[in-house]
Design a protein around this nucleic acid. Structure first.
Length: 593
RNA sequence: GGGGUCGUAGUUAAGUCGGUUAUAACGCCGGCCUGUCACGCCGGAGGCCGCGGGUUCGAGUCCCGUCGACCCCGCCA
């Protein structure tokens, strides 16, 4: 028998009950998490969005309700009327928020039944993710995932409140937009009305928000979905959400000032964490030199040591040759790791090979000095110099990579994070922010044989570097900035080019000829000629931000309905094939089955 | 495009050197139980060992292929 809701109104959420409610008559509605049937008394943990409350069916209170309770199974939907009572002495459950009280049921409506679940909602059991994804609606009932989405909602709420207070205007930009060649691969949407033509889903609202600055909105924001048709990772989904902002008549310091205060407010109000302002800063060049990467985790040391000059003139050919041919040699002092086994060091070697390193030289610092396969190639003076560079002491393990700069920095930068994990140097409750500034504007792409924008083609060069834009592009720095949290880039932005002449020059530098520039970005170039104010902005990757706030290492934990690594939704079974009729209407013909 | 890990009741796992009836816990079903809270006790049902092929007298176990999930490189801010 299924009961109707009738005129019952819920009086409060289950998790909201406290000792202050004792004696009150309440109506609760929710799901039966567990039933404990003692033959006489029946206990049910009733769960809703807010939490749990124990409800008690006593045959001496209401026989009919008790009989109904005998048929309750997991996840049945109930509405109960009853009285809040203190639990008898000795039966208080201190591990439960509502553990001091219970609701003695006087009347019960069974609003719906549930099939036996494909997996338990108990948090004690880890269930395979493909099953959780297929039954996402059940997985979302589990407190962990539910709380993640509640936190996410809180963060967007705080963000909107803060940005509106600070004069930002929320404007929605199109999802059906124009394909752009630079950057990530676009998701395409065929146009039925214009057969053979396609919209692109935006990788970001970049050009729209700049044009809103041309329009004079002064400050824009949007919590906006963005799309990139690239391969997925633990922290990458094909659609993701950005907190997207743009401001007029500002320089870098204005943007950073407003935005770091936003992040601090989010952490304070959503997580109770105080973030010290202003946040620390580091130039790109310094980040690469000390940490090998542009997203350094500054919660621990293990900094990279530059050794190229020292080893260039030594008898160790491998190192000397690398330096002679334009490469570099850097190292990490893994403090106190001289006890690592051969196997463990081999594993570290395999690890750096992932990032292109050919090998990992090592030195164990023992009481007798260097213990190392490469020790014989160095004089005792050279060893002293290298020890000094590392600050090496007995018990340390020195690790070296010699290769092209990019490979050395990349592999050692990643190895540094890995070592910190192994050595347990990372405190999960610490949040260390750092702004990375002074990025290079352009980077030479060896495969495409052209310069490519490090940030994007609309980023302004630094005023003092403008003169090098054509003569020495690699030397030109950008007015760009990234915010890095615990080694993860959570946002990035820049001051934009607001003069048409410089923007056109930029396109030329990127090897985009005038015709292409007109075809792809003509509307931006046109707009720039009608009184564009200096402007700049930033976008935060909201999914990744929330993920770091909850300490998860999967972005799927903060997205209600995420995709698998092959881009599938296991619940809805998207993507799927479509009717021939639909293809015909779009003027499309498939070449694959 | 490439490298790696995994796939056994509904779920989580075990399954030895290839050996005859594939285990356990939880869940499920039935019964009992008036203070439990991951309740307890008794009984029961439940399996195309991801799928396809091969080797073998014999395959959950070995080999090849394939599908799927996850992690990573490339790719991607």
């Amino acid at each position: 028998m299924i009961d109707f809701l009738g005129d019952w109104k819920r009086s409060c959420y289950c998790g909201a009950l406290t000792a202050n409610d004792i004696g009150k008559e309440v109506i609760l509605m929710g799901w039966a998490l567990r039933r404990r049937d003692h033959g006489g008394l029946i206990f049910v943990d009733l769960r809703d969005r807010d939490g749990l409350a124990q409800i008690v069916f006593d045959p001496e209170v209401n026989v009919e309700a008790h009989r109904k309770a005998e048929s309750i199974r997991n996840e049945y939907v109930l509405a109960v009327k009853g009285k809040v009572a203190p639990r008898p002495e000795g039966t208080v459950n201190p591990s439960l928020k509502t553990g001091a009280i219970e609701v003695i049921v006087t009347e019960c409506k069974m609003l719906n039944r549930s099939k036996a679940l494909p997996f338990t909602l108990d948090e004690h059991v880890e269930v395979a993710e493909n099953i959780r994804l297929k039954y996402r609606y059940l997985d979302l009932r589990r407190p962990a995932l539910r709380d993640n989405l509640l936190l996410r909602s809180k963060v967007t709420g705080i963000t909107r409140e803060y940005l509106v207070e600070n004069g930002f205007v929320e404007v929605e930009t199109p999802y059906l937009s124009k394909s752009t060649p630079e950057g990530a691969r676009d998701f395409l949407v065929p146009s039925r009305i214009n057969q053979g033509q396609f919209y692109a889903l935006p990788q970001s609202p970049q050009l729209y928000k700049q044009i809103l600055m041309v329009s004079g909105f002064d400050r824009y924001y949007q919590v906006v979905r963005c799309f990139r048709d690239e391969d997925l990772r633990a922290d990458r989904q094909p659609e993701f959400t950005q907190i997207d902002c743009e401001m007029s008549f500002v320089d870098r310091e204005d943007v950073i000032g407003v935005m770091e205060a936003l992040i601090a407010k989010i952490f304070k109000e959503a997580k109770g964490v105080d973030v010290e302002l202003p946040m620390s800063r580091m130039r790109y060049s310094e980040a690469i030199r000390r940490f090998g990467v542009d997203n350094p985790d500054i919660r621990f040391g293990l900094e990279l040591v530059e050794l190229s000059d020292i080893v260039a003139k030594t008898g160790f050919k491998v190192f000397a040759d690398v330096v002679a041919s334009g490469g570099i040699v850097k190292g990490i002092n893994a403090k106190g790791c001289s006890g690592l086994s051969r196997k463990e060091i081999d594993e570290l070697t395999e690890f750096v090979k992932i990032y292109g390193a050919k090998g990992l030289a090592y030195v164990k610092m023992t009481a007798e000095g260097w213990q190392s396969p490469i020790a014989k190639f160095f004089t005792s003076d050279e060893i002293k110099t290298i020890d000094a560079a590392f600050g090496a002491e007995e018990g340390d393990l020195l690790l070296f990579v010699a290769d092209k700069p990019k490979i050395v920095n990349d592999s050692l930068g990643r190895l540094r994070n890995r070592l910190a994990q192994i050595l347990k140097l990372i405190n999960d409750d610490t949040y260390r922010f750092v702004w990375i500034t002074d990025f290079p504007l352009l980077e030479w792409d060896d495969e495409e044989k052209r310069w490519v924008a490090v940030h994007h083609p609309f980023t302004a060069p630094m005023d003092e570097d403008l003169e090098f834009l054509e003569s020495d592009p690699g030397r030109c720095r950008a007015k760009a900035y990234d915010l890095v949290l615990n080694g993860n880039e959570i946002g990035g932005g820049s001051i934009r080019i607001h003069q048409e002449k410089i923007q056109s020059k930029m396109f030329r530098m990127l090897g985009i000829n005038e015709e292409d520039a007109r075809a792809k970005f003509g509307y931006l170039l046109d707009a720039l000629e009608y009184g564009t104010p200096p402007h700049g902005g930033i976008a935060f990757g909201m999914d990744r931000l929330i993920m770091l706030m909850i300490g998860s290492d999967s972005i799927r934990d903060v997205i209600a309905f995420p995709k698998t690594q092959k881009g599938a939704c296991l619940m809805s079974e998207a993507p799927s094939s479509v009717e021939t009729k639909q293809l015909r209407e779009l003027g499309l013909k498939l070449t694959v089955k």
